[in-house]
Nucleic acid binder design. Structure first.
Lengths: 219, 219
DNA sequence: GTCTATACTTGGATAGAC
DNA sequence: GTCTATCCAAGTATAGAC
């Protein structure tokens, strides 16, 4: 599903040469989406960056949109792998924010989340693309929810707000921060927020020691 | 019939005609950005939607990018007016979330924030556009900060996190929610979050009644 | 001053070469 | 099966008509 899911014309060959070309195009697409955005990710721009003929995009992927989706698949897979490995090391709630901060910076460096943002924003240009992108974002929500359950499952807040709803806002905030950070090139505001969030998590951890079950609104 | 007599208004009527055309192009640009996204907002698509000749974009605005920025200006102005009027009616912290929820839905209906998102995401395609967009987003941060100061200024949280930093995340979250909502067409998840946030605000208001006053460092 | 017809460039897609 | 040369549509911009 990852490589041929949305494709209609993808050659079914198992040739090594073909795989190399496809990989080069996917890599170039990621870089182009990051640097030039969705509207700058043309078949010509992508293939030129890879040093390949422009027609190869259509031979190997059928259309530019299919190549963009293949790139989104590659990014999603790589990110989910990294996220999962990171979250596996986390046991306490106080740890999660420092890990999250590290990952956020890594995402800024690689530009992977920019690729996601560009695909979401660009989805409205092509009929049907929105649904394809939405499908590929699904795992991000479930990952966020699992991470929340694992780290805040026994926190009093978990009783107030369903983790699925919070996961939605976490993803939204992450995308929004990425977008704003990428816009003005200054990552300080976002990093400040991560620092504040870490403080809040620690504070909540301390509070939950005093109020293990329900908020202290009772008589 | 000499022109001189009746033509005393020729210059003025000409100016008015120009203003009408410009306005039609700006309106069409907003609609096109909303429906087709940044990459779909070409001079041809915009002018065709307005029923005008494609060349008028370049006569009146010089370039497509300039027209896009003019549309962003129009949206920003309209939104800031609406936001300011709404916040003026708010005095208590418990009110702000219901007002915010209303405005969020209004933004979804009009597609105004989609225009902003598309411009941010599309900014990377054209050198120098990012800075222009960033300048136009500035007022959104100051508005969010003022709203936070007005409604949560005497809350204990204000002492924990600077309102400017929180404002940054509020804008980021707002953009992210808009983006995700626009992607899958389902506004329920976002509305749930606003409902949860309202509960939290009410809860915090109750808590601050028990907590001793922690005055933020006043200048 | 306002607008249209035309020139030129870039992009998506395919027929055909190897 | 893999890739290139070529075609046509869509985009930006301007010269010139009114």
């Amino acid at each position: 599903m990852a490589k041929a899911g949305a494709a209609s014309k993808v050659a079914a060959s198992g040739t090594k040469k073909s795989a190399t070309t496809r990989q080069a195009l996917v890599d170039s697409t990621i870089a182009t989406l990051r640097d030039e955005g969705f509207s700058g990710a043309s078949a010509r721009a992508i293939s030129e960056r890879a040093g390949l003929n422009q027609g190869l995009v259509f031979y190997h992927f059928g259309s530019v949109v299919n190549l963009l989706l293949a790139a989104l698949d590659a990014v999603s897979e790589a990110r989910m792998e990294k996220y999962s490995a990171a979250i596996a090391q986390v046991s306490s709630a106080s740890e999660i924010m420092s890990i999250a901060t590290q990952i956020f910076q890594d995402d800024l460096d690689t530009g992977y989340v920019t690729v996601l943002v560009e695909m979401i924003a660009g989805a409205s240009s092509t009929p049907g693309l929105g649904a394809e992108v939405a499908t590929r974002i699904g795992p991000w929500f479930t990952f966020a929810k699992d991470a929340l359950d694992k780290t805040f499952g026994d926190s009093p807040i978990a009783a107030l707000m369903p983790s699925g709803d919070v996961a939605y806002s976490v993803v939204a905030l992450y995308l929004g921060l990425e977008m704003l950070t990428h816009l003005n090139g200054d990552r300080e505001p976002a990093l400040k927020l991560f620092a504040h969030a870490q403080q809040m998590v620690v504070l909540l951890g301390a509070l939950s020691a005093f109020a293990p079950t329900v908020p202290p609104a009772s008589t």
